[in-house]
Amino acid sequence: MKADILHRLIALRQARSPCALVTRIIDGCQSLIAGGSPDGDLVLTPAHLEQIAARLAADKSGPLEADPGLFVRVYAPPSRLFVVGAVHIAQFLAPMATMAGFEVTVIDPRRAFANADRFPDVELSDEWPDEAMAKRLPDAQTAVVTLTHDPKLDDPALVVALASPAFYIGALGSRRTHAQRVERLTAEGLGEQVTRIHAPVGLDLGGRSPAEIAVSVLAQIVMVKHGHDL
Protein backbone atom coordinates (compact mmCIF):
# COMPACT_ATOMS: atom_id res chain seq x y z
CA MET A 1 0.00 0.00 0.00
CA LYS A 2 1.43 3.33 -1.08
CA ALA A 3 1.77 6.06 1.51
CA ASP A 4 -0.61 8.46 -0.28
CA ILE A 5 -3.38 5.83 -0.38
CA LEU A 6 -2.85 5.10 3.31
CA HIS A 7 -3.08 8.78 4.23
CA ARG A 8 -6.20 9.37 2.15
CA LEU A 9 -7.80 6.25 3.61
CA ILE A 10 -7.17 7.50 7.16
CA ALA A 11 -8.50 10.98 6.30
CA LEU A 12 -11.68 9.53 4.74
CA ARG A 13 -12.32 7.40 7.80
CA GLN A 14 -11.82 10.34 10.13
CA ALA A 15 -14.38 12.28 8.04
CA ARG A 16 -16.85 9.35 8.34
CA SER A 17 -16.86 9.06 4.51
CA PRO A 18 -17.44 5.53 3.22
CA CYS A 19 -14.75 4.34 0.80
CA ALA A 20 -13.53 1.20 -0.94
CA LEU A 21 -9.94 0.11 -1.51
CA VAL A 22 -9.55 -2.06 -4.61
CA THR A 23 -6.43 -4.26 -4.81
CA ARG A 24 -5.22 -6.28 -7.80
CA ILE A 25 -3.98 -9.34 -5.98
CA ILE A 26 -1.44 -10.42 -8.60
CA ASP A 27 0.70 -7.27 -8.39
CA GLY A 28 -0.67 -5.19 -5.51
CA CYS A 29 -1.81 -2.23 -7.66
CA GLN A 30 -4.51 -0.28 -5.83
CA SER A 31 -7.19 2.37 -6.28
CA LEU A 32 -9.28 4.11 -3.68
CA ILE A 33 -12.92 4.86 -4.46
CA ALA A 34 -14.72 7.58 -2.53
CA GLY A 35 -17.79 9.52 -3.61
CA GLY A 36 -18.02 7.40 -6.76
CA SER A 37 -14.71 8.45 -8.29
CA PRO A 38 -11.64 6.17 -8.40
CA ASP A 39 -8.14 7.38 -7.69
CA GLY A 40 -5.07 5.20 -8.11
CA ASP A 41 -3.21 2.82 -10.41
CA LEU A 42 -6.06 0.60 -11.61
CA VAL A 43 -8.15 1.04 -14.75
CA LEU A 44 -11.71 0.36 -13.63
CA THR A 45 -14.60 -0.01 -16.08
CA PRO A 46 -18.12 1.34 -15.44
CA ALA A 47 -19.17 -2.27 -14.74
CA HIS A 48 -16.43 -2.54 -12.10
CA LEU A 49 -17.49 0.74 -10.52
CA GLU A 50 -21.11 -0.36 -10.42
CA GLN A 51 -20.22 -3.53 -8.54
CA ILE A 52 -17.92 -1.62 -6.19
CA ALA A 53 -20.77 0.80 -5.46
CA ALA A 54 -23.04 -2.16 -4.67
CA ARG A 55 -20.44 -3.56 -2.25
CA LEU A 56 -20.10 -0.13 -0.64
CA ALA A 57 -23.87 0.09 -0.17
CA ALA A 58 -24.00 -3.39 1.36
CA ASP A 59 -20.84 -2.83 3.47
CA LYS A 60 -19.51 -6.13 2.18
CA SER A 61 -15.87 -6.69 1.32
CA GLY A 62 -14.91 -9.42 -1.16
CA PRO A 63 -13.61 -10.23 -4.65
CA LEU A 64 -15.17 -8.31 -7.52
CA GLU A 65 -17.69 -10.45 -9.42
CA ALA A 66 -16.59 -9.04 -12.81
CA ASP A 67 -12.92 -9.73 -12.05
CA PRO A 68 -12.17 -11.97 -9.06
CA GLY A 69 -8.52 -10.91 -9.27
CA LEU A 70 -9.62 -7.58 -7.82
CA PHE A 71 -10.37 -7.50 -4.10
CA VAL A 72 -12.66 -4.79 -2.72
CA ARG A 73 -12.21 -3.77 0.91
CA VAL A 74 -15.15 -1.64 2.03
CA TYR A 75 -14.56 0.83 4.84
CA ALA A 76 -17.94 1.94 6.16
CA PRO A 77 -18.11 4.62 8.83
CA PRO A 78 -18.53 3.06 12.27
CA SER A 79 -21.99 2.82 13.81
CA ARG A 80 -22.76 5.39 16.48
CA LEU A 81 -24.39 5.09 19.88
CA PHE A 82 -25.99 8.01 21.71
CA VAL A 83 -26.35 7.30 25.41
CA VAL A 84 -28.70 9.75 27.12
CA GLY A 85 -27.95 9.82 30.84
CA ALA A 86 -24.39 9.79 32.19
CA VAL A 87 -25.48 7.33 34.88
CA HIS A 88 -23.80 4.29 36.40
CA ILE A 89 -24.98 1.92 33.62
CA ALA A 90 -23.59 4.36 31.04
CA GLN A 91 -20.14 4.13 32.65
CA PHE A 92 -20.11 0.46 31.65
CA LEU A 93 -22.07 0.72 28.42
CA ALA A 94 -19.87 3.46 26.90
CA PRO A 95 -16.54 1.57 27.04
CA MET A 96 -18.16 -1.76 26.15
CA ALA A 97 -19.85 -0.26 23.07
CA THR A 98 -16.61 1.48 22.07
CA MET A 99 -14.80 -1.86 22.17
CA ALA A 100 -17.59 -3.36 20.06
CA GLY A 101 -16.88 -0.78 17.34
CA PHE A 102 -19.40 1.98 18.11
CA GLU A 103 -18.57 5.69 18.24
CA VAL A 104 -20.17 6.61 21.54
CA THR A 105 -21.54 9.99 22.66
CA VAL A 106 -22.81 10.33 26.23
CA ILE A 107 -25.35 13.12 26.65
CA ASP A 108 -26.42 14.61 29.99
CA PRO A 109 -26.91 18.28 30.91
CA ARG A 110 -26.11 17.46 34.54
CA ARG A 111 -22.38 18.17 34.71
CA ALA A 112 -22.03 16.31 37.99
CA PHE A 113 -22.83 13.20 35.91
CA ALA A 114 -21.34 14.06 32.53
CA ASN A 115 -17.70 14.77 33.26
CA ALA A 116 -14.42 13.41 32.01
CA ASP A 117 -13.50 11.88 35.36
CA ARG A 118 -16.50 9.58 35.09
CA PHE A 119 -16.21 9.12 31.31
CA PRO A 120 -12.61 9.13 30.11
CA ASP A 121 -12.07 8.60 26.34
CA VAL A 122 -15.73 9.15 25.41
CA GLU A 123 -17.34 12.11 23.64
CA LEU A 124 -19.44 13.96 26.22
CA SER A 125 -22.19 16.51 25.68
CA ASP A 126 -23.72 18.59 28.48
CA GLU A 127 -26.39 20.00 26.19
CA TRP A 128 -30.08 19.13 26.55
CA PRO A 129 -30.60 15.75 24.90
CA ASP A 130 -32.84 17.02 22.08
CA GLU A 131 -30.35 19.79 21.22
CA ALA A 132 -27.36 17.48 21.45
CA MET A 133 -29.01 14.93 19.16
CA ALA A 134 -30.41 17.49 16.71
CA LYS A 135 -26.80 18.65 16.22
CA ARG A 136 -25.60 15.11 15.53
CA LEU A 137 -28.71 13.88 13.64
CA PRO A 138 -29.10 10.12 14.18
CA ASP A 139 -28.80 8.24 10.88
CA ALA A 140 -29.57 4.64 9.95
CA GLN A 141 -26.23 3.57 11.51
CA THR A 142 -27.08 5.16 14.85
CA ALA A 143 -28.45 3.57 18.03
CA VAL A 144 -30.01 5.65 20.80
CA VAL A 145 -30.56 4.52 24.37
CA THR A 146 -32.04 6.61 27.17
CA LEU A 147 -31.01 5.79 30.74
CA THR A 148 -31.90 8.80 32.92
CA HIS A 149 -35.25 7.58 34.37
CA ASP A 150 -36.29 11.24 34.08
CA PRO A 151 -38.95 12.01 31.45
CA LYS A 152 -37.70 15.61 31.26
CA LEU A 153 -34.44 14.27 29.81
CA ASP A 154 -35.47 10.98 28.21
CA ASP A 155 -38.62 12.13 26.38
CA PRO A 156 -37.07 14.94 24.30
CA ALA A 157 -34.30 12.53 23.23
CA LEU A 158 -36.85 9.89 22.27
CA VAL A 159 -38.85 12.43 20.24
CA VAL A 160 -35.74 13.25 18.16
CA ALA A 161 -34.81 9.56 17.88
CA LEU A 162 -38.30 8.55 16.75
CA ALA A 163 -38.23 11.22 14.04
CA SER A 164 -34.93 9.79 12.77
CA PRO A 165 -34.02 6.57 10.92
CA ALA A 166 -31.99 5.34 13.97
CA PHE A 167 -31.72 1.56 13.68
CA TYR A 168 -32.20 1.03 17.42
CA ILE A 169 -34.00 2.99 20.10
CA GLY A 170 -34.05 1.71 23.68
CA ALA A 171 -35.37 3.22 26.90
CA LEU A 172 -34.59 2.11 30.44
CA GLY A 173 -37.54 1.67 32.79
CA SER A 174 -40.07 -0.90 33.98
CA ARG A 175 -43.11 -2.00 31.99
CA ARG A 176 -45.19 0.42 34.08
CA THR A 177 -42.80 3.32 33.43
CA HIS A 178 -42.83 2.47 29.74
CA ALA A 179 -46.65 2.36 29.61
CA GLN A 180 -46.71 5.92 30.99
CA ARG A 181 -44.01 6.91 28.50
CA VAL A 182 -46.04 5.50 25.61
CA GLU A 183 -49.03 7.53 26.80
CA ARG A 184 -47.00 10.76 26.88
CA LEU A 185 -45.39 10.17 23.47
CA THR A 186 -48.72 9.16 21.95
CA ALA A 187 -50.18 12.43 23.24
CA GLU A 188 -47.38 14.15 21.32
CA GLY A 189 -48.57 12.47 18.14
CA LEU A 190 -45.90 9.75 18.01
CA GLY A 191 -48.33 6.87 18.54
CA GLU A 192 -47.27 5.00 15.41
CA GLN A 193 -43.56 5.37 16.11
CA VAL A 194 -43.46 4.34 19.79
CA THR A 195 -43.42 0.64 18.93
CA ARG A 196 -39.85 1.20 17.71
CA ILE A 197 -38.73 1.70 21.32
CA HIS A 198 -37.16 -1.37 22.94
CA ALA A 199 -38.50 -1.34 26.48
CA PRO A 200 -37.85 -2.69 28.99
CA VAL A 201 -34.44 -2.16 27.44
CA GLY A 202 -31.98 -4.97 26.70
CA LEU A 203 -32.10 -8.74 26.36
CA ASP A 204 -33.40 -10.58 29.40
CA LEU A 205 -30.14 -12.07 30.69
CA GLY A 206 -31.26 -12.07 34.31
CA GLY A 207 -28.51 -9.69 35.49
CA ARG A 208 -29.28 -6.67 37.69
CA SER A 209 -25.98 -4.88 38.21
CA PRO A 210 -25.13 -1.81 36.09
CA ALA A 211 -22.45 -3.75 34.19
CA GLU A 212 -24.80 -6.67 33.56
CA ILE A 213 -27.53 -4.34 32.30
CA ALA A 214 -24.95 -2.71 30.00
CA VAL A 215 -24.15 -6.17 28.57
CA SER A 216 -27.84 -6.86 27.95
CA VAL A 217 -28.37 -3.48 26.24
CA LEU A 218 -25.27 -3.86 24.05
CA ALA A 219 -26.28 -7.44 23.19
CA GLN A 220 -29.69 -6.23 22.04
CA ILE A 221 -28.17 -3.40 19.97
CA VAL A 222 -25.79 -5.84 18.24
CA MET A 223 -28.65 -8.26 17.57
CA VAL A 224 -30.85 -5.57 16.02
CA LYS A 225 -27.90 -4.17 14.01
CA HIS A 226 -27.49 -7.55 12.33
CA GLY A 227 -31.21 -8.09 11.83
CA HIS A 228 -31.32 -11.09 14.15
CA ASP A 229 -34.05 -12.13 16.53
CA LEU A 230 -34.18 -14.50 19.46
Binding site: L6, L9, I10, R13, Y75, P78, P95, T98, M99, G101, F102, E103, D121
Partner: peptide
Amino acid sequence: MATETDDVFTRIGQ
Protein backbone atom coordinates in the same frame (compact mmCIF):
# COMPACT_ATOMS: atom_id res chain seq x y z
CA MET B 1 -10.47 3.79 22.53
CA ALA B 2 -11.34 3.47 18.88
CA THR B 3 -12.99 1.01 16.57
CA GLU B 4 -11.19 -2.09 15.41
CA THR B 5 -10.42 -0.80 11.90
CA ASP B 6 -9.30 2.57 13.24
CA ASP B 7 -7.04 0.81 15.69
CA VAL B 8 -5.36 -1.10 12.86
CA PHE B 9 -4.53 2.16 11.10
CA THR B 10 -3.58 3.86 14.37
CA ARG B 11 -1.16 1.01 14.96
CA ILE B 12 0.29 1.35 11.44
CA GLY B 13 0.85 5.06 12.11
CA GLN B 14 2.56 4.42 15.45
